[in-house]
Computed example of a mutant assay.
Amino acid sequence: MKKNIVPFFVACLALSCSTTAFSRQQHSNDPVRPGESLKLVSRKFAFTEGPAMNRKGEIFFTDQPNNTIWKYGLDSTLSLFMDKAGRANGLFFDRKGNLIACADENNELWSIAPDKRVTVLLNNDEGRRFNGPNDVWVDPQGGIWFTDPYYQRDYWTRQAPELKHQGLYFLARGSRQARLVDTAFTKLNGLIGTPDGKMLYVTDLGGGKTYCYDIAAPGALRNRRLFAAKGCDGMTLDNRGNLYLSGKGVTIYDKSGTLLRHIDVPEDWTANLCFGGKDKDLLFITAKQAVYTLKMRVKAAE
Rank of each mutant, 00 (worst) to 15 (best):
W156S: 04
D63P: 09
R240Q: 14
S175L: 05
A271T: 14
Q289H: 14
D238Q: 04
K84Y: 00
H27L: 06
L191A: 11
F45L: 13
K187T: 09
L168T: 01
G206P: 02
A14Y: 02
V265H: 03
Q25C: 06
Q26W: 03
I215S: 02
A101I: 12
G219W: 00
G73V: 01
S28M: 05
Y253W: 02
N223K: 06
F284P: 09
Q64R: 12
K44R: 09
G276C: 11
I5D: 12
R153D: 10
D268F: 07
F170P: 01
T48A: 03
E105Q: 13
A178P: 03
L40C: 11
G206D: 02
D233S: 14
T20Q: 04
F60E: 13
I112S: 06
D254E: 07
E108G: 01
G127Y: 09
E58W: 14
Y201V: 05
K187D: 00
L243C: 09
T251Q: 00
T258V: 01
A103F: 12
M82G: 03
K44I: 07
T258P: 03
P195K: 08
N4Q: 13
W137C: 09
K299V: 06
T157Q: 15
P133N: 12
L259W: 10
K187H: 02
N134Y: 13
Y292S: 12
E126I: 04
R261H: 06
Q25D: 09
Q64F: 13
T210A: 05
A103T: 14
I100A: 12
N107A: 06
S37N: 07
Y213K: 01
T194P: 02
A178L: 02
D233P: 13
L226F: 00
L38C: 14
R173C: 02
G57C: 15
A229F: 00
N107W: 01
N107H: 06
L99T: 11
G231R: 03
R33L: 15
G249T: 04
N242Q: 14
L282F: 07
R43P: 02
I285P: 15
L78E: 12
F93W: 11
R224L: 01
T147W: 08
G219D: 03
Q177H: 10
S111Q: 10
L168M: 04
D268T: 12
A113W: 08
A184L: 11
S37V: 09
G197A: 11
G90D: 12
I69C: 07
K209L: 00
S76E: 14
R158W: 01
A184M: 10
H27R: 05
K280S: 12
G247M: 08
G86P: 10
E105V: 07
P195D: 09
G219V: 03
W70R: 15
D115P: 04
P218S: 02
N223H: 05
